[in-house]
Amino acid sequence: MIWDWDYFWEALPIVVGDGLWITFQVTLLGSIVAYLLGMVLALLRRSRIRVVSTVTWAFIEFIRSTPLLVQLFFLFFVFPDFGLKFGPVTTGVIALGLHYSTYAAEVYRAGIEAVPVGQWEAATALSLPRARTWRAVILPQAIPRVLPALGNYTISMVKETPLLLTIGVTDIAGAAFQEASSTYRYVEPITIAGLLFLVLSYSASLLVRWLERRVGTLH
């Protein structure tokens, strides 16, 4: 018997119960890190100090061009050298957040550039201080419009959380794999994991599409 529905229904609550919450938690925290750090990177990238903007650019390109998995291993093995004793979940959140912050930075950059030049000029004409211009004029216009694009990256992040099983985090895929390894029955648990991701990313994409309609997109 290749496919066993009884086992399917037995394994489903185990995979969901053990994994879903971790996947959710990691994605949520990872996104928060990515969105905040991405904003910092975007602003540094626009710095008037040449060295700062160039170094930021190089950092973003480097992180974007190399595998998240290797970055994850880097943090996992190198943190302890600095006396940082993070658990696997925390390390995973930092790795995901760092990796996706470079994508978020690009999104913010595009959002900021889409704010018409006239807005900067009007702020200058009103003698608003630079910090105030950013906080009160530019960002409030840029941020709503970048939300759908950021949401898309969160969807991607959901599907990359299984990487964390390599450092011992049991997300959906990790839980499925654990269940499969303990019973030596791989078909149902891993198929369940696939189905769950399909449901998650599809419903998340509906959410982002709704968001897109709410705020309108930039072209």
């Binding site: 595009a110 949401g151 990256y153 991607s156 990313s201 998340a204 994409s205 982002v208 930039l218």
Partner: peptide
Amino acid sequence: RKKPVLAETVSAGGGP
């Protein structure tokens, strides 16, 4: 060349 990050269509792919 960077893709126009804000103008993409959303589907279950999401994505970087």
